[in-house]
């Protein structure tokens, strides 16, 4: 409709500026997004292609030797021989599953608690936003202090309820859960806020009529609220899974992947291969594998969401 209007408007006015404006009018649909698309190509697509190219070279950036083309050898080594890489995949999945499941469960519980007329609900919601906004590097350092086995406040608080002191970040079995706790602290509020927004869009009628029919709170939750909320839950899960698979700051600051490699996720593996050993081609292959994993998981989730709608 508006397209039909345009030529008229253009004819009324005159001058070269108007020619430009009318050109913009006619081509607005691609002119408007063009700058962003160009930047996207420049800052993201181009380096990604370069990354793919690098993944087929073997090269130590610290040596004077030139890169050598090796085809898919890096990937063959990675998936065929490198146990550390294979371990890092499982570690990444374990960390992500642990963190995201708990975030969803706790986040939902808190959302249900907060989903009512509360005095100062704005303040409450803002307080909830703080963990996810506060600088992760800084917060990770505070967690390191709290987890400290000999002077940390966490072991002290737990000792009050009779839990013996734990080594947390130095314990092979505890380090991933300990890191997941940090992620849960940081991003459960994100899930909660998202679900609160979702709860606000749920129609009241089904719930009201169920109440009249004498359904219990549990039944309402299980049979009415949750199914209606499912799309939002899937979205929350999607966002959280994507971000958790990529977690870097917290783990790097808190453990650098240690003890040993006990918390070395794929992302850390890629980073350390790249910037500690400068084994560039191999690192590129690792980072591409991480991208593949993220895309795979989110593809499944997006399909899940589509089926729902």
């Amino acid at each position: 409709m508006s397209v039909a209007e345009k030529p008229v408007a253009a004819q009324v006015s005159r001058g070269p500026t108007d020619a430009v404006l009318s050109f913009i009018d006619r081509h607005a649909q691609w002119l408007f997004p063009a700058p962003a698309v160009i930047m996207l190509l420049l800052v993201m697509v181009f380096p990604s292609l370069y990354n793919i190219y690098m993944s087929m070279q073997t090269w130590f950036a610290t040596s004077t030797a030139e890169p050598q083309f090796v085809g898919l050898q890096n990937f063959a080594d990675l998936f065929g021989k490198d146990e550390n890489f294979r371990d890092s995949i499982w570690r990444t999945i374990y960390f992500t599953a642990l963190a995201v499941v708990l975030e969803l469960v706790i986040g939902l519980a808190i959302a249900l608690l907060l989903n009512r007329e509360l005095k100062g609900h704005k303040v409450i919601r803002t307080l909830f936003m703080l963990p996810m906004m506060a600088t992760p590097t800084a917060m990770a350092l505070i967690w390191v202090l709290m987890y400290n086995p000999t002077l940390g406040v966490l072991n002290y608080l737990l000792s009050l309820i009779g839990v013996p002191p734990q080594e947390w970040l130095s314990n092979l079995a505890l380090v991933i859960p300990a890191l997941a706790v940090v992620d849960i602290w940081q991003y459960t509020p994100f899930v909660t806020l998202l679900l609160l927004a979702g709860l606000a869009t749920i129609p009241v009628e089904p719930v009201e009529s169920a109440k009249i029919d004498g359904a219990s709170a549990w039944q309402i939750l299980w049979h009415i609220t949750l199914p209606l909320l499912r799309p939002t839950i899937v979205v929350a899960a999607l966002f959280r899974i994507i971000d958790t698979l990529k977690t870097f700051d917290t783990i790097y600051v808190m453990t650098q992947g240690g003890p040993g490699r006990a918390s070395q996720t794929i992302n850390l593996f890629a980073f350390q291969t790249a910037f500690e050993y400068f084994h560039i081609g191999y690192a590129a292959a690792v980072s591409l594998s991480l991208i593949a994993l993220v895309f795979m998981v989110s593809g499944v989730l997006i399909r899940l969401r589509r089926q729902e709608l």
């Binding site: 086995p149 000999t150 453990t255 040993g260």
Partner: peptide, 21 residues
């Protein structure tokens, strides 16, 4: 060794000595 041995670098190890632990 004190707790946290596997993540200890020398500054932390020395700190254990310094703090009489």
């Amino acid at each position: 060794g004190p707790p946290g041995m596997t993540t200890m670098n020398w500054p932390e190890a020395v700190a254990q000595m310094q703090s009489n632990r």
